[in-house]
Design a binder for these strands. Sequence first.
DNA 1: TGACGTGGCTAACGGCGTTAGCTAGACTTG
DNA 2: CAAGTCTAGCTAACGCCGTTAGCCACGTCA
Lengths: 176, 176
Amino acid sequence: MASSARDRLTPRAREIVDAARGLLEEEGPDALSMRRVAERLGIRAPSIYKHLPDKQALETALISAAFEEQAAAFEAAIEASDDPLASLAAAYRAFANVHPHLYRLMTERPLQRDRLAPGVEERAARPLVEAVGGDRDRARAVWAFAHGMTILELNRRFPPDADLDAAWHHGLEAFS
Amino acid sequence: MASSARDRLTPRAREIVDAARGLLEEEGPDALSMRRVAERLGIRAPSIYKHLPDKQALETALISAAFEEQAAAFEAAIEASDDPLASLAAAYRAFANVHPHLYRLMTERPLQRDRLAPGVEERAARPLVEAVGGDRDRARAVWAFAHGMTILELNRRFPPDADLDAAWHHGLEAFS
DNA sequence: TGACGTGGCTAACGGCGTTAGCTAGACTTG
DNA sequence: CAAGTCTAGCTAACGCCGTTAGCCACGTCA
């Protein structure tokens, strides 16, 4: 099962996206500059524009790949478990905590859906819709809860002594 | 009832924060530059540093003021209503939709609590804690849901045809 | 009167995304 | 094989950004 988002890129573009991914994960969003990405590949920033139209395209490629990884994690989480909603929630939280900068990039700005790899957003959403029994409104409410818990945790908006496991439990209980 | 966050500033600093607020609300986050703020006041960017230590202080002042306005809106929403949770949720969503750029600024990065006006975060949080009967874990779960719905709406992450009222209703129902 | 603090200013630094224009080398084609 | 064309790099530059250094006019106050 190949990664369709990667396949849309030329080999050199893929190397650029890989460099960007490493930079983002290791050093955070401020390091994700065209000059830093180029430096990592031993070239100059303007050369990147021979392979990708602009920085937004680079970010969109990162986001597309992230959606696919997320979807794969969700599918695996559901498969093994007899409490799909709980393991989905755990997988959601885990993905964001392992890839905090990537998760922020995925969620903090309006999605450029036309520049995204097609189908990738739906694939990441489907496991949750199925886990709640097909009710899309309910799925959206649960997603909002999960994203809220996740991003508020990443942004350290809860008090340092807050029991986040308890809050997660409360929410999942309410939605069950 | 004076605005304590504003009172912490010198009069000139208050003018700078006001100019920044207008710029942010009217033109979005890219317009919130030291040069643009200065231009609005008929001065040059470096002069701002006579009144505020850096751009982060400017943003923190905006956030402090926003917390106070939010808290006032929440308190008013609870007072009039016999369904505190529902009107609190409506007030939460309304504040973010009226001040989208300000709401993003308030939530999208880790809070510099030591630079914030003291007490302002707690004051904005209290109405919800009371509305859910004092259980802080439950309050955090509801907040996560409300923030998730709100920021996903602002960032247009729901499909364009999604029935957000229905999703809000679902969530509030689950938490009641 | 003279010292000093206040609040402006210009010039500059190093960063950013991006564009224009050049070129060495590879590849294609008559 | 020669000529042309495409690829993928380069430098220089533009106009932004936050921020610092250093200068100066003005008002206040001893």
